[in-house]
């Protein structure tokens, strides 16, 4: 149920895309909710483009936000966001949750390329992203987390990213950082003082036969084949700008 309660906002935004049968993509469902407003934007070719526009600030402590996108057989959907998402402290000090669910059918393709998620000082957010792909589906997914606004201590942020292809989990990773996170999160095994961390996941059926070659992209990023038809770029950087540079370089390597 959507709405504002005493403890925070409950909102679930939904996108559904399907092929129009003439080489294009229709959006039969485009329902924004709460702070997650959705706009269709101009696109070229077969894909539909959607922009997530922040209609109010958040997520704030206590909020329960969800965003689902499903892409039916043969459709192509590109989702971006107009600006970075900033997790902020709420009135109550409760944890906020933001759950993203992505479903991609056979022969469909999703580009999920939102702007950064910034964990502002005092915030507490648990974000999950779960992509469920059919065999023969394609995905380009980018996630970037930034610890604190400029010169600010970060809030508490836990982020779990799960990618499943044909019923098999090919990637399941959780990163927990900020005050109150399990010890060592800013040490040499996890972030070592870096304030931006990101992943780029590319799923392509042909990777099953021809996986990418593992390669280091500088000292703090790596391109690796996952156990399945997928590649991952994992990177840490001092700030959001340099992180984006690393992930863009990796995207061009993968022609994604």
């Amino acid at each position: 149920m959507d709405g504002v309660t005493t403890t925070g906002v409950r909102a679930h935004a939904r996108i559904a895309a399907r092929a129009d049968g003439r080489g294009g993509t229709l959006l039969p469902v485009l329902d924004g909710a709460g702070p997650l407003a959705l706009r269709r934007v101009r696109s070229t070719g077969a894909e539909a483009r959607v922009m997530v526009v922040g209609a109010m600030s958040g997520p704030l402590g206590g909020d329960r936000l969800a965003l689902s996108a499903s892409v039916a057989e043969g459709a192509r959907l590109h989702v971006g966001s107009a600006a970075a998402t900033i997790a902020l402290p709420g009135q109550t000090g409760d944890e906020a949750r933001y759950d993203v669910r992505l479903d991609v059918a056979e022969g469909a393709e999703l580009h999920w390329l939102p702007e950064q998620l910034i964990s502002a000082g005092g915030s507490d957010l648990y974000v999950t992203t779960r992509a469920e792909l059919a065999a023969g589906a394609g995905l380009v997914l980018r996630e970037e987390q930034v610890l604190g606004r400029a010169g600010e201590e970060p809030g508490r942020l836990t982020s779990r990213l799960t990618v499943r292809v044909a019923g098999r989990t090919v990637l399941d990773q959780e990163l927990s950082c900020g005050p109150g996170a399990p010890g060592g999160w800013d040490g040499p095994a996890v972030l070592a003082g870096h304030r931006a961390v990101g992943q780029l996941v590319v799923v392509r059926p042909e990777f099953a036969e021809r996986p990418v070659q593992a390669q280091a992209l500088g000292e703090c990023a790596v391109l690796i084949p996952l156990a399945g038809p997928a590649a991952l770029v994992s990177a840490v950087a001092p700030d959001a700008l340099r992180l984006r540079g690393l992930l863009d370089e990796a995207r061009s390597l993968l022609a994604a």
Binding site: L191, V197, C220, I224, V236
Partner: peptide
């Protein structure tokens, strides 16, 4: 099962 990860361990 937990999925806790250290990016620098992987890199």
């Amino acid at each position: 099962l937990p999925a806790a990860s250290g990016p620098l361990l992987e890199v």
